[in-house]
Design a protein around this nucleic acid. Structure first.
Length: 735
DNA sequence: GATTAGGATTCG
């Protein structure tokens, strides 16, 4: 291949099929087939002879256009030349010479692989776009424009056939021009995420409306959007497969950024606020992740979202039917405290319908409203006065709407960091558990499960950037805490869900089994012997209740109860009772009439709690266990714990699922302890991931994130254990 | 080569 030195305006023609791309857009994944770059040789290395009579030479070329400004962009690229090309280059080129770099002749033909972004032909003959200043628009003309966004609405459905985007832009002329974009496809609309973003529009028509010029898209319309932050990478946001971008564009974007930064363009618009800084009554934009959603009625949908920060105000919680919820049904208490229930109305319901849990959103012009709102659906307590509710009212005023943020946006990257930090901290609470407990024998033989068939798989939700490895590589790698694997589930233990449920004490880091009803019955029976006369403390009043008529049992006997004096005065006689001398069954019957029941017995003439091997509190179907600490009871937490045997082509590996079990199944352990629907959900998932009696080779493949850690077994031997983390079961969509 | 909308909160 000959080397030609180009002098400006002369020299050999660049072949027409070659396209120039800016150096800043080159990444290791860029398809450089038929692409050229143009730049000055800023470094020319020596011609280095290789031992096979060949040569090698390194140089650095820099795009001249970008040398004019102080951009932080990569405008230079290292180039290694081989063989005669290196030799010819060494002889004919000098440092400081502008030259084209021709593509690698061994690259595959252009039609074999297409990069998602390829630039339009940008040789000397290509049409050069000209951009109209916003103060020079003439009615009826079709122009190309650049502008800084000072107002925008997310695309909304028009009454016609298209979605409509409404925006206002400005430029150095300070003229503010409204733009209306009609496109049938959402992806063709400008990808604007915040005021200050920079748009470049081709083929928009200037028209007069209300004595002002507005711009409307016309045939051949295209738009590219850039982040407006000074110094940020100039990355075009567009769904166009082909678009023009040259160093002039780069410069225009950077000039507009600098100019906008010096202007007070958007002093009055709503700004992005984290949940931790939300003020009641305020309108704000919320950048968040969608965790779950559920329709409330035809005009309202609940979006359960979080941004990893804690709102200082108590958040209103909306109850919806579990079977209409999409996404995780319940969360750990710590996570629940960070979740905002957002009610979206009217036109936003349709947009919300298309959102998938896990997606990152910006909700524009959200309203925080304090007070005992009468929200649709039931609230979790009758007393949610001053709890903060979030409403996205109907309409599109003030840009009200929901926008999906792409995973690579800087805002999402930041959000992921905050969320991961929370999850790591959440793990800390459980991390000091005595690991020998985990290694205890799993006694239960497998049993077959009935249930609907689902086709589940799993996906990672972590943001670790790493290659997948095989199970044998995981076993061999002594170092490194996190591994990504793809494997099948060969077996798991225990098969009985109630054996996977454990009680965990965050104070003493111990784990224990959940007592079964047989054990509880014997505890109640034993305690009922201690129900003789006792002198109750002054804060309770004693009384008697009869069991419901239809109740089976020896007779309709009356049971001794104690009511809290304070609650009596407040008329809340059904909120909580202390119950003495009942059987477990009788107590369960009384649950129909009382929200909370605390079983008590008479011990030495005094009212006392049961032994803490029984629940200290019954609430509906939920039972609360505790352990004794110096000044009272430390509540125990339900956790889920399973051992999974993974298999791939190279090996098998035992891993635990517990710290991330709740997000894995999309069910909280507490719900799994009491809620049949939650229990069914877990059983169906396990049945799908590891069908009983099936051939392991036909089990679904699972993408998993594994964390390795050291644990001591009973003999004090250190061994490496693995846990599934940051992994979620994917169920087939019900749509 | 038609039509849509044409910024401008607040029912829930």
């Amino acid at each position: 291949m000959p080397v030609h030195v180009l002098l400006e305006g002369t020299g050999p023609q660049i072949p027409a099929h070659l396209t120039r791309i800016p150096i800043s857009l080159i990444t290791t994944s860029t398809d450089v087939t038929d692409k050229i770059v143009k730049g000055k040789v800023v470094h020319k290395g020596p011609l280095v002879p290789l031992n096979n009579d060949s040569f090698i030479l390194k140089m650095v070329i820099q795009e001249e256009d970008s040398m004019l400004n102080s951009s932080s962009q990569n405008s230079s690229v290292n180039v290694v030349l081989f063989g005669s090309l290196a030799k010819n280059f060494s002889q004919s080129a000098n440092q400081g010479v502008l030259r084209p770099v021709l593509p690698n002749p061994r690259s595959p033909p252009a039609n074999e692989r297409r990069s998602p972004v390829s630039a339009e032909l940008s040789s000397a003959k290509a049409p050069k776009y000209t951009y109209a200043k916003l103060d020079s628009l003439k009615a009826g003309s079709v122009v190309n424009v650049y502008g800084v966004v000072v107002f925008f609405k997310q695309p909304f459905k028009s009454r016609g056939t298209d979605f409509c985007s409404s925006l206002k832009i400005t430029d150095h002329s300070n003229e503010k021009i409204g733009c209306t974009i009609f496109c049938e496809k959402l992806e063709d609309h400008p990808k604007i995420f915040r005021n200050g973003d920079i748009v470049r529009m081709h083929r928009v028509k200037a028209q007069v409306f209300n004595k002002s010029i507005t711009l409307v898209n016309t045939f051949g319309f295209s738009v590219v959007t850039f982040d407006g932050v000074k110094g940020a990478p100039v990355e075009p946001r567009t769904s166009s497969r082909s678009f023009h971008f040259d160093p002039d564009d780069q410069r225009t974007v950077e000039e507009l950024r600098s100019w906008a930064a010096s202007q007070a363009l958007f002093a009055s618009v709503t700004s992005t606020v984290p949940l931790s800084a939300v003020q009641p009554k305020a309108y704000f934009d919320l950048t968040c992740q969608l965790l779950a959603k559920a329709p409330v009625d035809t005009t309202c949908t609940l979006l359960r979202v979080w941004d990893g920060t804690r709102c200082p105000h108590t958040l209103l919680k909306v109850i919806v039917e579990p079977h209409v919820t999409e996404g995780q049904l319940s969360f750990s208490k710590e996570r629940e405290n960070l979740i905002a229930d957002v009610l979206v109305y009217d036109n936003h319901v349709e947009v919300a319908r298309k959102l998938k849990p896990g997606v990152f959103l910006r909700i524009y012009n959200l309203r925080a409203i304090a007070g005992s709102s009468t929200v649709p659906g039931l609230t979790r307590s009758q007393l949610q006065v001053d709890h903060l509710a979030f409403h996205l009212h109907g309409g599109t005023s003030y840009g009200r709407g929901i926008g999906i943020l792409p995973d690579n946006s800087p805002d999402v990257q930041e959000l992921k960091r905050v969320i991961e930090a929370f999850q790591e901290n959440d793990e800390e609470a459980l991390s000091e558990l005595n690991d020998s407990d985990l290694l205890e024998v799993w006694r239960t033989p497998p049993e077959s499960l009935d249930g609907e068939t689902l086709d589940c798989s799993t996906e990672r939700s972590c943001s670790h950037d790493m290659q997948k490895v095989t199970l044998s590589e995981v076993k061999r790698s002594g170092l490194g805490r996190v591994h990504h694997v793809r494997a099948q589930l060969k077996a798991y233990e225990p098969h009985r869900l109630h054996e996977a449920l454990k009680l965990y004490c965050s104070k003493c880091k111990s784990m224990q089994d959940v007592p079964d009803d047989e054990l509880l019955e014997s505890i109640f029976s034993e305690a009922s012997k201690d129900c003789g006369p006792c002198s109750p403390p002054p804060w309770v009043l004693s009384g008697q209740v009869s069991l419901p008529r239809h109740a089976p049992g020896p007779s309709n006997r009356a049971l001794t109860v104690y009511l809290l004096t304070q609650l009596m005065f407040e008329g809340k006689t059904k909120d909580v009772i202390l119950l003495m001398g009942s059987t477990l069954e009788e107590m369960c019957q009384l649950m129909a009439s009382y929200q909370n029941i605390i079983p008590v017995r008479a011990s030495g003439g005094h009212l006392s709690l049961f032994d803490l091997s029984a629940p200290f509190l019954f609430r509906g179907r939920k039972r609360y266990y505790g352990s004794e600490i110096t000044l009272g009871i430390q509540p125990l937490q339900f956790i889920l714990l399973m051992k999974l045997e993974l298999q791939d082509a190279t090996d098998t590996l035992d891993v635990f699922l517990w710290r991330h079990a709740e997000s894995f199944f999309g069910v909280s352990a507490e719900d799994a302890s009491a809620n049949q629907e939650a229990q069914n959900s877990i059983c169906q998932i396990m049945d799908s991931l590891c069908p009983p009696g099936g051939n392991v080779g036909q089990h679904p493949w699972l993408d998993l994130c594994l964390m390795a850690y050291q644990a001591e077994d009973d003999d004090g031997q250190t061994k490496t254990c693995y846990q599934v983390c940051h992994t979620t079961v994917v169920k087939p969509s019900s749509e």
